[in-house]
């Protein structure tokens, strides 16, 4: 399977995951969205030298991976392109922040090293928290929850349609690549001189497909505002789940 078709199927696999009938999928999307935002805010608010606290805050993703039966290996594979970027954020800290605070054997531990690890962990936790949300909630439900908290419709529709068009773009790119490779069997990759026309074709074809999708939407009554399926109201279980995590975040952030 080519990288493009692999990416295409990954998106659909994620959607399948989000559509599963697990307890975590059944929690109200607004509750999951609020918990994710609260978690990210809690993580981000931790001081850059407070490594112990940031380590403890790993409880949320670890608990969710275990309780929600979300494959950790799959999640690492899916976010593998983002994680290095997250790690780069703090990589220069040891060079600028050189105050030694401890020694392990002959190795001096500097505040820069601590802040680098803290920053990396913050990034990793944030990525995993978002992944957990996307893996347990469909994009429509996330957008529905965003509308419930009055995020402007135009912005939410942009997010939804961008997400949908990723599939369109990937599929068209895959078709073009397959057609190219079938007619250039002895080549490794795409020749430099044809990149321009391939990208141009991709643009034209994806615009064409996007036009058709949009026409199909307008023919079925779409008028600029997406109408989401009304979700059941938050139940007692949803509130309990929310309160539990708010309490856990509060304790981990301010008490322990």
């Amino acid at each position: 399977m080519s990288k493009l078709s692999g990416a295409y199927y990954e998106i659909h696999h994620m959607e399948q995951l989000a559509n599963e009938d697990q307890w975590v999928n059944r929690i109200h999307p607004l509750v999951k969205l609020v918990i994710t935002v609260l978690y990210i805010m809690t993580v981000v608010s931790v001081h850059k030298y407070n490594l112990a606290r940031i380590l403890i805050l790993g409880v949320y993703p670890i608990a969710m991976f275990i309780l929600g039966e979300i494959s950790f290996a799959d999640s690492i594979r899916r976010v593998r392109l983002i994680l290095p970027l997250v790690c780069i954020v703090g990589i220069f800290n040891p060079f600028f922040d050189r105050q030694v605070i401890a020694h392990i054997g002959n190795i001096a531990i500097t505040t820069g090293m601590i802040s680098m690890v803290t920053l990396i962990l913050k990034g990793v936790y944030t990525v995993f928290a978002t992944y957990i949300l996307v893996a347990t909630t469909t994009i429509e439900k996330i957008c529905y929850a965003m509308r419930l908290v009055h995020i402007p419709g135009i912005l939410v529709t942009q997010i939804l349609l961008t997400y949908r068009y990723i599939s369109v773009l990937l599929k068209e790119a895959n078709t073009i690549m397959q057609a190219y490779l079938l007619r250039a069997p002895h080549q490794k990759g795409v020749q430099m001189k044809v990149w321009g026309s391939l990208v141009g074709q991709l643009l034209l074809r994806s615009i064409d497909r996007a036009d058709n999708v949009y026409a199909s939407m307008t023919l079925r009554g779409y008028h600029g505002e997406f109408c989401y399926a009304r979700q059941k109201k938050c139940s007692g279980k949803d509130y309990a789940y929310l309160l539990l995590w708010v309490a856990v975040f509060g304790i981990l952030r301010y008490i322990i």
């Binding site: 429509e140 058709n212 199909s216 079925r220 009554g221 779409y222 008028h223 109408c227 399926a229």
Partner: peptide, 29 residues
């Protein structure tokens, strides 16, 4: 009027079959 495209793939854009079928009735309120 209901219009069925030659390329059905362009016509279907929601996640599941039932969601796609529900798209128009929901839009009509």
């Amino acid at each position: 009027i209901g219009y069925v495209f030659q390329d059905s793939e362009s016509q279907l854009f929601m996640n599941t079959v039932k969601e796609d079928i529900a798209f128009a009735p929901r839009n009509y309120g």
